[in-house]
């Protein structure tokens, strides 16, 4: 039996999180109190990396991963816009290698706008933002080749990376580039931790633009996310507590069908087999004894489990509706022969 429409719980929780974020954005916009962001070493290293590239006169490489145009690649491009802003002031060359045509178009516009806003449009090189290939390993080969040929001084690998992450990180490491990396893919983060100098972990990636710009809207949104995390942590803690308490309660359990099936299977064994089984098995209580035994609740017998695991019957999924008339058959279909 399903006790609640769980689809509505998800919507309610999401809307609550949206409300937290919007409320904090509004709060930050009023600007009465400066909101605090903790120090993130990976983001502090951005200026050092740009400075190093400027001193060495070598380019800065930026790769927003191989994902399509989504929140992750947009955030990566936002961070790269900040990197480019600083780089443009020192005329440090940049290279942005992109695997998706839509991201390429957006990134090129953003980078051009950054140079324009800085009043240095003449420093913008159209070929600094490049579409390499939308095939994963062709892209990896292209970027690695560019890294080697142009001897990058700093690389920023931020976005959606998969198996190619280590190819980039190790290639950049082999040419001595300082590396700041971050991926939303938890499976790739360990590779970056192993191979890169600074790594943005999990949602630090999304905190980057707030951290770098201190824009009230972004900082407020970050605080809103923290409120959401507190809510989720409380839900996990309370859920574990309630579930644990329920699991310690005794459930009314019907042993009889289990016992009968077990006895039938046991009686079908040969005498030798019966002896062997009896030696190694824990002594099973007899049917009469089993009737009186009560067991603790199983994981799938608790209230919380039932709330979040609906079990709709076939009747719930079949709805009788009026039918519209079928479309007329195309010419030539009728008559057959």
């Amino acid at each position: 039996m399903q006790w609640l429409d769980t689809g509505k719980i998800g919507i309610f929780v999401t809307l609550l999180m949206v409300a937290f974020i919007l409320f904090n954005i509004a709060r930050a916009r009023k600007g009465k109190k400066e909101l605090f962001i903790r120090r993130i070493p990976g983001l502090n290293a951005i200026d050092d990396a740009i400075g190093r590239a400027t001193e060495m006169g070598r380019p800065i490489f930026m790769v927003p991963g191989i994902g399509t145009l989504n929140a992750i690649s947009v955030q990566a491009v936002n961070i790269f816009a900040q990197v480019t802003k600083t780089a443009s002031q020192f005329a440090t060359p940049i290279r942005m290698c992109i695997a998706d045509a839509a991201v390429y178009t957006v990134a090129q516009e953003v980078i051009r706008d950054v140079y324009q806003r800085q009043g240095m449009l003449e420093r913008f090189d159209v070929d600094s933002v490049r579409f390499i290939s939308d095939r994963q390993f062709a892209f990896a080969a292209g970027v690695s080749g560019l890294l080697h040929r142009e001897k990058a001084a700093a690389t920023f690998l931020l976005g959606e990376f998969y198996a190619e992450s280590l190819i980039f990180a190790e290639t950049a490491n082999s040419i001595g580039a300082i590396q700041v990396a971050g991926s939303t893919q938890t499976s790739q983060t360990p590779f970056f931790v192993a191979a890169c100098d600074y790594v943005l972990l999990g949602d630090e990636f999304y905190a980057a633009s707030a951290y770098l710009t201190r824009e009230p809207v972004l900082v407020g949104s970050l605080v809103g996310q923290d409120w959401c995390k507190i809510m989720i942590t409380a839900a996990v803690f309370l859920g574990a507590l309630f579930h644990g308490v329920e699991r310690s309660q005794v459930a009314a359990f019907e042993w009889a069908p289990y016992a009968e099936a077990n006895e039938a299977a046991f009686s079908a064994l040969s005498d030798d087999a019966k002896e062997k089984v009896a030696d190694v098995q824990v002594q099973v209580p007899s049917s009469a004894e089993r009737q009186g035994i009560q067991a603790l609740k199983k994981g799938n017998e608790t209230m919380l489990y039932r709330i979040f695991n609906p079990n709709p019957s076939a009747e719930d999924l079949v709805i009788e509706r009026e039918k519209k008339p079928p479309p007329p058959a195309a010419e030539g279909e009728e008559g057959g022969e």
Binding site: V74, Y206, L218
Partner: peptide, 19 residues
């Protein structure tokens, strides 16, 4: 959560700079 906040900011046009 980061993606949710990012999507919300983009959808409502709250973000300045970058994209």
């Amino acid at each position: 959560l980061g993606a949710l906040a990012m999507g919300l900011r983009l959808w409502l046009g709250l973000e300045k700079g970058g994209v």
